[in-house]
Every structure is written in C-alpha cells, then in structure tokens.
C-alpha cells in the first residue's frame, strides 16, 4: 500500500522533477537517471523515464538533439523549451502550495493530539 502511494506520488511529480533537472543543463537518458539517483530517486526503475521523456517531447516541453557525449558516442540530449520552463514554474508553485498545505494539516494533527 505504502509502495503504491509512493509510486502514484512519483508518477505525478517525476515530470516536474525532470523539468527542474533539465532547466539547469541538457542531459541524456543515463545522465538524467544518475542525477535522479543523486537527488534521492534511486529506487525508481529508470525505464519509466523514457516514455515520460517522449511524452514531454510530444507536449513540446522538451526538445531533443543528438550530439557527442563526454564518453564519445552521439547521444540524444534533452533540452527544456520555453513551454517547459513555464510548466516547471507552474509545478514549483503548485508543489509549494501542496507541501505548505500538507505541512499545515500535519501541524494541526499534532496540535489536536497534544
């Protein structure tokens, strides 16, 4: 049950996380998965990011370009678009509201219990 909730939460937030990551620099698939692991998303099966990246590309939140990677071979790099930046800002605002609301609710629960 806890795992299901975690998965649902991740599904809803992963797109926003990818937008934030890619607004700092353009990255390719494996580099994105490494970055996600660095920020605590190590448990996500990285296969899930590929359909999501394609969907985001279809929605024109990202665009892709092929260029040589630091390891040598040409890779597909993802670059955030103007629409992507706007979606990122909306996500950050919504996330802030949500976390504030949840924090307030949790504080009220603590208050009631005491």
């Amino acid at each position: 049950m806890a795992s299901d909730l975690n998965t649902q939460l991740l599904k809803g937030t992963l797109q926003g996380c990818l937008l934030i990551l890619l607004s700092h620099q353009k990255l390719y698939g494996y580099a994105i998965s490494e970055a996600l692991s660095t920020f605590g998303f190590a448990d996500i099966p990285k296969g899930t990011i590929y359909p999501l990246l394609l969907t985001m590309e279809k929605k024109q939140l990202l665009k892709s370009e092929r260029q040589p990677s630091p390891d040598g071979p040409t890779r597909k790099y993802y670059v955030i678009t103007a629409a992507g930046k706007q979606a990122r800002d909306e996500f950050i605002a919504q996330w802030s509201t949500l976390t504030n609301n949840v924090a307030t609710l949790m504080q009220k629960e603590d208050f009631d219990e005491s």
Binding site: S33, P45, G47, T48, Y50, P51, L52, L54, T55
Partner: peptide, 16 residues
C-alpha cells in the same frame, strides 16, 4: 537499471 517489469515499460514507451 531499466526495471523488473520491462513489458509494462515497453508498452508505455510504445504508447508515447
């Protein structure tokens, strides 16, 4: 790396 349910992910990839 990719996940232990490749069929589910491959289907999601195709849908995208």
């Amino acid at each position: 790396y990719f996940g232990h349910e490749p069929a589910v992910t491959a289907k999601a990839l195709l849908d995208a």
